[in-house]
């Protein structure tokens, strides 16, 4: 892509990548922000690449840092909200439902 400028010589991420992710996340970035975040993200990914370079064959993959598994809840109903109280906080409501602007496509 024409507008993509590498963050540094061996770039792992380009401004085009960041622009794409920003648009998926519905973030509007100014050009200077795009540059700044591309550099910051490149640093973070560079750090990940450093770790990747290590021999970690003997290390268990870790999904999260806290050694905690199987936190479960019994299937017992709890309180629910009062509908009118909830809908009074919504920008618009109709027939007990949230009223939202027309959506362009079907949900994924």
């Amino acid at each position: 892509m024409d507008q993509s400028t590498p963050a540094d010589d061996d770039a792992v991420i380009t401004t085009a990548d960041v622009a794409k992710v920003a648009s998926l996340a519905r973030l509007r970035l100014e050009p200077d922000e795009l540059d700044r975040f591309t550099h910051q993200l490149a640093d973070i990914l560079g750090h990940a690449a450093d770790i990747e370079a290590l021999d970690l064959d003997d290390v268990e993959p870790m999904a999260r840092p806290v050694p905690l598994e199987n936190v479960l809840r019994a299937d017992v109903p709890g309180p629910t909200f009062d509908r009118d109280a909830v809908l009074s906080q919504a920008p618009a409501a109709e027939d007990g439902q949230f009223r939202v602007p027309p959506v362009l496509g079907e949900a994924p």
């Binding site: 299937d75 017992v76 109903p77 909200f81 509908r83 909830v86 027939d95 007990g96 439902q97 949230f98």
Partner: peptide, 27 residues
């Protein structure tokens, strides 16, 4: 076929008045 939702204690029930099976997590 559970009594509650996957991640919260709001009721899992087919039908019913709209928005009556909602809690903080659902919202």
């Amino acid at each position: 076929s559970t009594r509650t939702k996957l991640f919260s204690a709001a009721t899992n029930e087919f039908g019913g008045e709209p928005n009556t099976h909602i809690d903080a997590l659902t919202l």
